[in-house]
């Protein structure tokens, strides 16, 4: 079970969250096709630290960005 360090609520259980995938830069609304494709499908699949989004639906209802290691599942963000 993941304990996710929400910056507003502290360490909270994984079941309170919805996963939002890797944090990526969104394209401009009027971006050209290749640019829009790139931002949508550009692979972000590292073995190791990954910046990703979580939605704290069962808590503060904020979208938060955290760094987690995909091999160990450890969060690198420090709440203190």
């Amino acid at each position: 079970m993941l304990l996710i360090p929400c910056p507003y609520c502290g360490l909270r259980d994984e079941s309170e969250f919805v996963y939002g995938g890797p944090a990526r830069a969104l394209p401009d609304m009027d971006a050209q096709t290749p640019e829009a494709q790139h931002s949508l499908y550009r692979p972000i699949n590292p073995r190791g630290p990954l910046r990703e989004l979580w939605y704290h639906s069962g808590g503060c209802e904020c979208w938060i960005t955290l760094t987690r290691n995909t091999i160990t599942h450890e969060f690198e963000d420090d709440l203190s």
Partner: peptide, 11 residues
Amino acid sequence: YASFARRGSFE
């Protein structure tokens, strides 16, 4: 969630 750990959550 993204993982290469070959172990998952009890949830």
